[in-house]
Write a protein that binds this DNA or RNA. Structure first.
Lengths: 266, 266
DNA sequence: CAGTGGTCTAGACCACTGG
DNA sequence: CAGTGGTCTAGACCACTGC
């Protein structure tokens, strides 16, 4: 297995290329499998393989990248651990997607007091509004835009067993989501992030949430059918696509009378 | 590398032992590295290596278990991924411990609005009470005890920059924590879970939390110095030791005026 | 049955730590 | 410098899937 080649440039990876610049402190060394990981990641980011599709077999990738199967394997291991890829023995390796039962509740952590996550069936979704506006400074900062840039603003209510439980305000950069309307949102069956994948080629990979307890104010109170002042779980989320690019700001208000936010500390 | 031997029994692992019974549905096959993982896990559980100490080198373990270094490596990889072990290149592999800066905030997810986790310095801790009582049905169920079994009950308040922010009620099975007093809790510098490790040989490995928004009631209201009815984050936690044995029930009430609960969705 | 991912081995070499 | 974990390879074989 002579000198490894960079598949995109066709140039051989020299020892120097495998070293980070000496001045850079953070990664003093980049092993081969991590470079392979970046190459696969690029393929994912550029849409070479779409969510739900299979990527080439480990042997194919090893040949393409001029490394051993074990090295490709280690790269894929890390991507699978980060939930970007899914391995299926005997079938292949596939790009992860939000359009799967299994993954449905990795981003919606509200579960009913009795029963398992999703045991109430799919939530009923009401799109309250979907309009174009311009980002204020707060939204701009969250989405790495400039203040005044165009954004789409969605407000919706999720109901379980007829009881409105979640009120969400969602901000999206207008450009990547051009063409998103209340009608398309309402028509789509399945998770919103799955629609983002198929319609806008945006795959949400990771999110950060800030959770607080807040009293229901006027406006939210009516949509969730609770008294003003009722404690609600305030969940502010920023969701990121592949290269840690923020693509969504979401403020949720969860009614925790009959549900709770579930979290595991590992 | 002929037939692998079980280091504890001295008996060779036969093909049959490496297969789960055919009747069992769940794990139809148990690879070697997973059996090695169990052996190491047993060592951890039985206190062969204590938190903070180093375990034998990969080569030593490979020799002891009669497998290759790669197989031991994969077992350790999984244990490290589960935060049970910590690898340190050039030094060895160590049993994870809560007495480390790095791990301090893996179980306390409340961070200040401005600043990084822990930027306020260590929280001031007030032990309100520490008494022996008997488990009601709810506590018994959470701790896998029988109703009426002896438990220790601790109530404490954590303050940041002089502001009381967290009120916690903690229930512990009395037997493993025999000798725990308010004085020892108050005297100990550092995380409570670190004290549990050094004094009671109980290492908390994993926890599940149920989070709700609740109004401050009478009693809690005075300790947190807020108005009755102020929304608080209610955090119910069950913490587990090595073999998924529940060892702590904790009900926390977090004041989220100047702090938020931080969570990452992967 | 061929093709996929999954396991296991053996050996070489690299990066990092400490004495 | 010896000892540790970390990387990379090559090859054999196993488990699972679908044709």
């Amino acid at each position: 297995m002579s000198t490894p080649f960079s598949p995109l440039t066709g140039a051989a990876l020299t020892g120097a290329e495998r070293m980070a610049p000496a001045a850079t402190v953070t990664p003093s060394f980049s092993p081969l499998y991590r470079q392979i990981k970046v190459l696969i990641l690029n393929g994912l980011r550029l849409g070479e393989w779409k969510p739900g599709e299979g990527i080439p077999s480990e042997m194919d990738l090893a040949t393409r990248f001029h490394v051993s199967q074990g090295t490709v394997r280690k790269a894929i291991d890390e991507l699978a651990a980060e939930n970007l890829l899914v391995r299926r023995q005997g079938k292949g390796t596939f790009v992860a997607t939000h359009a799967e039962q299994q993954v449905q509740f990795r981003f919606l952590k509200l579960v009913p007091d009795s029963g398992r996550p999703g045991s109430e069936g799919p939530a009923h979704r009401d799109i309250i509004e979907c309009r174009r506006s311009s980002a204020n400074s707060e939204v701009a900062r969250a989405l790495a835009l400039s203040a005044g840039d165009a954004v789409l603003q969605v407000r919706r209510v999720l109901s379980f067993l007829g009881t409105p439980t979640i009120l969400e305000d969602i901000w999206l950069p207008a450009d990547p989501f051009k063409g998103l309307t209340a009608e398309r949102l309402a028509a789509y069956q399945g998770p919103m992030y799955a629609l983002f994948e198929t319609e806008f080629n945006v795959r949400m990979v990771r999110a950060e949430e800030k959770i607080r307890a807040e009293p229901a104010n006027e406006g939210r109170e009516k949509l969730l059918r609770v008294e003003i002042g009722t404690p609600l779980l305030s969940v502010e989320r920023i969701a990121y696509t592949y290269k840690d690019v923020p693509m969504e700001l979401r403020r949720g208000y969860y009614c925790t009378e009959t549900h709770y936010y579930h979290n595991t500390l590992g």
